[in-house]
Computed example of a mutant assay.
Amino acid sequence: MRIIGIDPGYAICGYGIIDVVGSSLKPVTYGVITTEAKTPEASRLEIIFNELSDILEEFRPQKFGIEKLYFARNVTTGIGVAQARGVTLLAASQQDLPIYEYTPLQVKQSVVGYGKATKEQVIYMTMNLLGIREKIKPDDAADALAIAICTAHSSHTDTLKQILQL
């Protein structure tokens, strides 16, 4: 099974694609979609949508995991992120992908086993779980891979629940 994880962002949108082979997780690709600050808002959203649509077409994931939004301090920044998140969801919907949403706490719990893990701990465990030796850069790509891992773990739980209900 192929899974894409998305760390939504307006300036930097992280993506990470993994394959689940039995109980193993294998990295396929990861990176970021970036938009320039001076680019008009609608154009920035179009760039994110078009680039993500191309990635979805090329790699054909079966599941789409994305981070839920939460507003800590800066609501203005949050609006741009929400808009970027919206176009990523639209791209997934147009590919008929099932969408799974997770809070940062759920992702940390799934990847590290501790919901208050630091960013460094999440990156370290993401690298270990995927067998990646070099530090994943930028952090947005690492976060996206962690979201893909969380989606994979969630999928295994869903499968077990279905088996137990039979």
Rank of each mutant, 00 (worst) to 15 (best):
E46P: 02
L166Q: 15
I12A: 11
P8L: 09
L89F: 05
A91I: 07
A42M: 10
R85F: 01
I3V: 14
G16Q: 08
K137M: 11
T157H: 12
I6E: 02
V107Y: 04
G16A: 09
L164N: 14
E41M: 13
V122A: 05
I132V: 15
K26F: 10
K63R: 14
G16L: 08
K119P: 04
V87N: 00
K116G: 12
E67R: 07
L166D: 13
I163W: 12
K26P: 03
A72N: 14
R133P: 03
E134L: 05
A141M: 04
L129S: 08
Y124P: 00
T88V: 12
I99A: 02
S93N: 12
H156C: 12
G78S: 11
I163T: 09
R44H: 00
T77Q: 09
S24Q: 15
I79Y: 08
S43Q: 13
I17Q: 05
R60Y: 11
F59N: 15
T34D: 02
G131I: 10
L25P: 05
E36I: 15
G5V: 11
A144M: 09
A91M: 03
P138F: 10
I66L: 00
K116A: 11
R60W: 10
V20G: 02
Q62M: 13
A144L: 08
Q121M: 05
I66P: 00
G115Q: 00
I6A: 02
I55W: 08
Y30A: 13
M125S: 03
N50M: 11
G31D: 12
E36S: 13
Y100G: 06
I149H: 06
V20S: 11
K63S: 10
A148W: 08
G86V: 05
Q109L: 14
A84M: 01
E41C: 08
V87T: 01
K108A: 06
R133C: 02
A82G: 12
Y15R: 08
R73H: 11
